[in-house]
């Protein structure tokens, strides 16, 4: 079985995986980083979004071996000790989550949206950019507010 190496949330990790192992399986089952979730198997729901070399990726649709030698960031890597990342804080302040299952993917996608669109986001842009992440609880209203507030806070 192939042996792979990557940095996850800044820490060097390695593991022996079957070639068919998905990145999300490696993160969840081998590294026990269970903050990244699986909500579907067709790249639709976005619960599994992580960043690979700074780009947002649906980790259910990428083989673990494809992330060999890459820099991977998951939801577990965002907070600075007990201090939440501004985007995480914005989700809390704006009630941008209910059951919490889609939340890690939402936050990781939100960071990618800010990366590509800047800190001053309008509602239409946020809604369009979030279509790759499905939430059944919130009706998106407060997620949109959270992303807008989080983006602004990241610029401060």
């Amino acid at each position: 079985m192939p042996v792979i190496h990557m940095r996850v949330n800044g820490n060097p990790v390695s593991g022996e995986v079957e070639a068919r192992t998905l990145l999300v399986q490696f993160l969840r089952d081998d590294l026990r980083l269970t903050g990244t979730h699986v909500g579907c198997d067709t790249s639709q729901c976005g619960a599994c979004v992580v960043h690979v070399d700074g780009k947002s990726v649906k980790s259910c649709t990428m083989l673990a071996i494809m992330a060999n030698d890459c820099e991977v960031m998951t939801i577990e890597g965002l907070a600075n000790g007990s201090e939440l990342h501004p985007m995480q804080q914005a989700f809390m302040d704006n009630h941008g989550l209910q059951c919490g299952f889609c939340t890690p993917g939402m936050v990781m996608s939100a960071l990618d949206i800010v990366e590509r669109n800047g800190n001053d986001l309008d509602e239409a842009t946020i809604r369009k950019e979030l279509t790759g992440n499905i939430c059944r609880c919130t009706g998106y209203h407060n997620i949109v507010k959270a992303v807008k507030a989080g983006a602004r806070a990241m610029g401060d």
């Binding site: 903050g35 979730h37 939801i75 939440l84 989700f91 989550l97 890690p104 936050v107």
Partner: peptide
């Protein structure tokens, strides 16, 4: 939930 420590 926000730091990935939910327990589903």
């Amino acid at each position: 939930y926000l730091i990935g420590k939910g327990n589903y």
